[in-house]
Simulated assay, not measured.
Amino acid sequence: MGKSQGSSAGIFAIKRIYEDPSDDDGCRVLVDRLWPRGVSKERAQLELWLKEVAPSPPLRKEFAHMQERFADFRAAYEAELETNPAVQTLHGLAAEHGKVTLLFGARDPETNHARVLLEFLQG
């Protein structure tokens, strides 16, 4: 189950897209640049696919989900998020819906961009 955190502008949580949707997900937003394998659009039950908030392709390739590169990846991705207008889109959705669940496809629930994004949004 994904972690959630409250703020005055709503709650953010993260969840693997391969987990079943639930009523308490709120607004479901896919935050991967690539569509996850084996997941139909119907099963995903997305409100939005926000590719723009994902790490840039060069950063994603450099990280390659390698644990030893995660600290450098986190710093570089947070720098990208500082100037990314898609972050405001997520804050707007949280204000509108009360809760936004950030969906990701990565296998590792801790070492991935959605975790960095969640912590960035919680600020």
Rank of each mutant, 00 (worst) to 15 (best):
Q67E: 15
P55E: 03
E68S: 14
W35F: 12
W49V: 07
K61M: 08
D32V: 06
L90M: 10
E96C: 05
S56Q: 13
Q88L: 06
K61S: 13
E62V: 01
E68K: 08
H97M: 06
E119R: 12
R33N: 10
Q45N: 14
Q45F: 00
D20M: 04
E52G: 02
N84S: 04
A64E: 02
Q5H: 13
D24I: 12
A86F: 05
V100M: 10
V87R: 01
I14K: 05
V39P: 00
R16T: 09
S8I: 03
L48N: 01
E19Y: 12
A9M: 00
A95W: 00
H97I: 05
A79L: 05
P109T: 12
S22P: 03
E19R: 13
E110G: 12
Q88K: 09
G10Y: 02
K51H: 01
F63S: 09
H97L: 05
L102R: 01
D25G: 04
E110I: 08
A71R: 11
S4Q: 14
E78I: 03
H65D: 10
L46Y: 07
Q67F: 10
R115Q: 15
T101L: 07
E19T: 03
S7F: 01
D24W: 04
A13G: 14
S8T: 05
F12R: 01
D72I: 01
F120H: 15
R33H: 09
S8R: 11
Q122T: 13
A54Q: 04
P36K: 06
E82V: 09
L117Q: 09
A106Q: 03
S56I: 08
R60D: 08
R37I: 11
D25K: 08
R69M: 02
E47M: 10
A86G: 08
G6S: 13
T89V: 15
R43N: 09
T111I: 12
I17D: 07
A75V: 14
D32R: 05
P85H: 01
G123I: 04
E110H: 06
A86S: 11
G2T: 13
A75I: 09
L30W: 01
V100N: 10
R69F: 06
A86P: 10
E119H: 14
S40D: 08
T83H: 15
S4G: 12
G92L: 05
R74G: 03
S7Y: 02
R74C: 14
E62P: 01
K99H: 11
K15V: 12
E110L: 02
K3I: 15
L90P: 10
P57K: 00
I14G: 06
E78Y: 05
I14N: 14
E62T: 08
V29E: 12
R33Y: 03
P109E: 14
E110M: 08
A76H: 10
A9C: 06
A44S: 07
A13F: 00
R28G: 11
G38D: 13
V39S: 00
F63R: 03
G105T: 10
P85F: 02
Q88W: 04
K15L: 05
A79P: 05
V87P: 08
F63E: 07
G98M: 04
M66K: 15
